[in-house]
Structure formats: structure tokens, C-alpha cells
Simulated assay, not measured.
Amino acid sequence: MSGGEILGTVLGVLGVWLMIRQNIWGWPVGLVQVTVYAWVFYGAKLYSDAILQVLFFVIQAYGWWHWLNNQHTAAHSELPVTRLKGAALTRWLALGAVATDGWGTFMQRTTDAALPHWDAFILVFSLIAQWLQARKKLECWPGWLVVNTVAIGVYWVKDLYLTAGLYVIFWLMAVWGWREWARTVGPVSDRPGQSKTGPTQG
């Protein structure tokens, strides 16, 4: 258990709590947290997870901008929560499956990565969940539930016990977040930036 793992754990819980509350400060907290965990995962040879933190940084920076830029519109005081249509959800799942297999195979053949396909699953579906969260889609929360379930097992096997414990907390918080966001969910939309109530939704 390292100092970085402890710091990342504290920031991770704080960041998710702020996301559940739809508080825009969750994004800058998240930027610091993923920076810390990039070093933690690199040291554990979980290279896909280390790369994931870098990509998270980019998406979180976008999410911060997107929420800030769209929180004041003619119809809403903040960016509303919306849902995906079934066809869009199917496309995301198919893309995730193909990308997981491709990246996992690449990491297995070219690196000494531990648990390459499981690690790839965490990378790919975390990116999908993070993107949907940045777009304020309700489906981000069930996505996080699945990702967190896999992550708990992977991090426990790699002796990252505090991180595994963190993801147990994340799992419970994802259930909470799903419930809280569902209370304020708006119309269904099938593509980023489009919904029945205007181009700034979702």
C-alpha cells in the first residue's frame, strides 16, 4: 500500500460523490485523482490501466468544459441527464466488445502486462462509461457497475488491496448515482449532443 494509492483512494471517493451530486467540481478532483493513479498502475505493470488514466484525463477535461459550457441554457439551469436509445446502447456494447478483444490481444503479444484481456476490458468500458458521464447519460452508472465488478477482482489479484476496496465503494456509489440521476432524467437521445429538447442535451 503506497501513499499514491491512499491519495488516489481519497480523491476517487470524493470525485464520485461530487458526480452523484451533479457537482461540476467533481471534474477537477477527478483530474488530480487519475494523474495519481496513472503512476500507481504503471508501477503494478497494469499498463492498460495506466494508459486509461491518461485517456480519463482528456475525457474529464472535456466533461468539465461540457458541463460548464452547457449548465446555463434558456430552458435549464444546468445540463440535464438524458438516456440513450436502445440502438445507440447496442452500438456502444458492440464497439466495447471488439475494442476489448483487440486491445487485450495486442497487450498480450507485445508486453508483459498482467491479465491483459481483463485489463483491456476495464480500459475500454471505463472509457465508454466516462464518455457517457461527460455527456450526462444515465447509462454511465450501470456501465460503471460492470467495470467496477471486474476491477475489484483484477486489483485484488494484483495485491492492490486498497484499490480493490476503493472499487467496492465505487460499486456501491454507482448504484447510488444511478438512482439519483434517474430521478432527474430527461428525454431519450441516440447520439451525443442530440435529444428531443434541444442540441445542448446529453
Results as ranks from 00 to 15, higher is better:
99 A>E: 00
178 W>T: 11
64 W>C: 01
35 T>H: 14
94 A>F: 13
10 V>D: 12
170 F>K: 11
52 L>G: 07
49 D>L: 05
10 V>W: 13
23 N>S: 13
91 R>S: 03
31 L>E: 03
84 L>P: 10
128 I>Y: 05
192 P>M: 08
69 N>A: 15
28 P>N: 09
89 L>Q: 10
6 I>F: 15
144 W>T: 00
120 A>I: 00
139 E>P: 03
91 R>F: 09
53 Q>A: 00
176 W>V: 15
50 A>L: 12
122 I>R: 01
62 Y>W: 12
94 A>G: 07
184 T>K: 12
166 L>A: 11
115 L>K: 05
41 F>S: 03
193 G>V: 07
60 Q>T: 13
6 I>A: 12
64 W>N: 01
167 Y>S: 05
200 T>G: 07
47 Y>V: 03
37 Y>P: 07
76 H>C: 11
27 W>P: 04
109 R>A: 13
136 K>W: 02
159 D>G: 10
51 I>H: 00
170 F>L: 12
64 W>Y: 06
115 L>V: 08
165 G>R: 13
170 F>T: 06
105 T>L: 11
92 W>L: 15
8 G>L: 05
123 L>C: 06
168 V>W: 09
173 M>K: 03
145 L>Q: 11
106 F>M: 06
103 W>H: 09
119 D>K: 01
123 L>T: 11
32 V>I: 14
115 L>T: 06
77 S>G: 14
89 L>C: 04
83 R>L: 06
57 F>C: 08
42 Y>P: 02
201 Q>N: 15
115 L>C: 03
199 P>Q: 04
99 A>T: 06
83 R>Q: 14
125 F>N: 09
12 G>E: 03
30 G>W: 00
86 G>D: 07
16 V>N: 08
69 N>S: 15
27 W>F: 12
40 V>G: 10
199 P>L: 07
196 K>T: 08
181 W>R: 10
191 R>K: 08
55 L>A: 14
141 W>R: 00
87 A>G: 04
174 A>H: 01
114 A>K: 15
19 M>S: 14
52 L>V: 02
24 I>P: 07
179 R>V: 12
4 G>M: 14
19 M>R: 08
146 V>N: 06
25 W>A: 09
9 T>L: 03
119 D>H: 02
151 A>I: 08
16 V>M: 14
193 G>L: 07
115 L>F: 12
112 D>S: 13
133 Q>T: 10
154 V>C: 01
85 K>R: 14
10 V>A: 14
101 D>T: 11
103 W>K: 01
52 L>D: 02
128 I>P: 05
6 I>V: 15
54 V>Q: 03
28 P>R: 04
130 Q>Y: 09
61 A>H: 04
91 R>P: 03
126 S>G: 12
52 L>Y: 10
21 R>D: 12
106 F>P: 02
68 L>H: 15
48 S>F: 02
65 W>Q: 06
23 N>Q: 13
58 V>P: 00
22 Q>W: 02
20 I>W: 06
15 G>K: 04
179 R>C: 08
45 K>F: 03
53 Q>Y: 00
172 L>V: 11
38 A>R: 09
167 Y>K: 10
36 V>E: 00
186 G>A: 05
42 Y>W: 14
138 L>R: 08
42 Y>V: 02
137 K>A: 11
187 P>A: 05
114 A>R: 15
34 V>T: 11
3 G>M: 12
81 V>E: 04
28 P>C: 05
